[in-house]
């Protein structure tokens, strides 16, 4: 993020700029070091608790046991991550594409919104764990129900945000478009879509993590591969180290997915005023 520096009186522009850059470097470094320090202290605390209270390995593993499992079973863990990642990403694309398409229809046809928005809200009130078996019955045991669950879980927040974004157009900008005799299509692409982008991205960032949750929950029901299946197996076998390692692999993927969307947002939404630290 670009921060704003204020030029002090009696200070040369070069000096001020150098100082600004140095401050920015320090800030950036801090932003990396502090989270790392936080993670490290949690790991230390975890190790101390497990060793100090002599916790048996089937209840909770030590950080070292988890690290060892991560290294030794890396191949197997990644092999199981692959289907989950595929389901999550495909579900993400499908769910969000559907949400954006339906939001577009809702904005153009108020009657459609009035008729179907309540239906969407109703479906959204069914918890994922209840939707999952229904979809497995409907779509079989393959990858399809998992994609469908991931898609459904992404769908609702994106739909709501996208409709809000498309409708939160500045009324004067709307009048400007009319003075310019812009067609509805031009109003949509030149005004509504750019207005909606920040709203869309805040939904997509939520969807990036929830899509992975959706895929994992889908795998809990009748699946032999994937992070979700591995979690169930490890739990039944009291293999706490493998359970933790699996959870870590799953969350790492979630975080990377989230960061990818954040990076995309930075590329696309460049116009917001810089947030002054």
């Amino acid at each position: 993020m670009a921060d704003v520096a204020i030029l002090q009186s009696g200070q040369g522009i070069d000096a001020a700029e150098a100082e600004y850059r140095a401050a920015q470097r320090r800030r950036r470094l801090r932003r990396r070091i502090m989270p790392a320090a936080g993670v490290l202290s949690v790991l230390v605390l975890w190790g101390l608790l497990v060793y100090g209270f002599d916790v048996p390995p089937f209840v909770a593993p030590s950080p070292f046991a988890v690290a060892q499992t991560l290294v030794e079973n890396a191949g197997m863990l990644l092999a199981n991550l692959w289907p989950t990642a595929l389901e999550a990403v495909l579900g993400f694309l499908l769910g969000n594409a559907a949400a954006i398409a339906i939001a577009t229809v809702f904005v153009h046809k108020k009657t459609a919104e009035e008729a179907f928005f309540p239906v969407v809200v109703l479906i959204n009130t069914i918890p994922v764990v209840a939707k999952a078996p229904i979809l497995v019955l409907l779509l079989g045991n393959g990858i399809e129900p998992k994609i469908a669950i991931a898609a459904l879980i992404c769908f609702f927040p994106t739909l709501v945000n996208m409709v809000r974004g498309l409708e939160s157009v500045n009324p004067q900008a709307m009048e400007l478009m009319r003075v310019l005799s812009a067609s509805p299509r031009e109003v949509f692409f030149k005004l509504r879509v750019p207005t909606a982008l920040p709203y869309l991205f805040s939904a997509l960032k939520i969807a990036a993590s929830t899509a992975v949750i959706g895929a994992i929950v889908g795998e809990w029901i009748g699946s032999t591969v994937g992070i979700g299946a591995l979690i169930i197996q490890a739990t039944y076998n009291f293999d706490s180290a493998l359970l933790y390692a699996t959870v870590i692999v799953g969350s790492t993927f979630s975080v990377l997915f989230f960061l990818a969307i954040t990076g995309l947002e930075r590329l696309v939404v460049r116009w917001q005023a810089p947030v002054v630290a």
């Binding site: 500045n170 004067q172 003075v179 030149k190 750019p194 116009w271």
Partner: peptide, 13 residues
């Protein structure tokens, strides 16, 4: 016609 609005109404993007 040209129209100038009170708050400029520029498109921020």
């Amino acid at each position: 016609l040209g129209f100038v609005f009170q708050d400029a109404a520029l498109l921020p993007w």
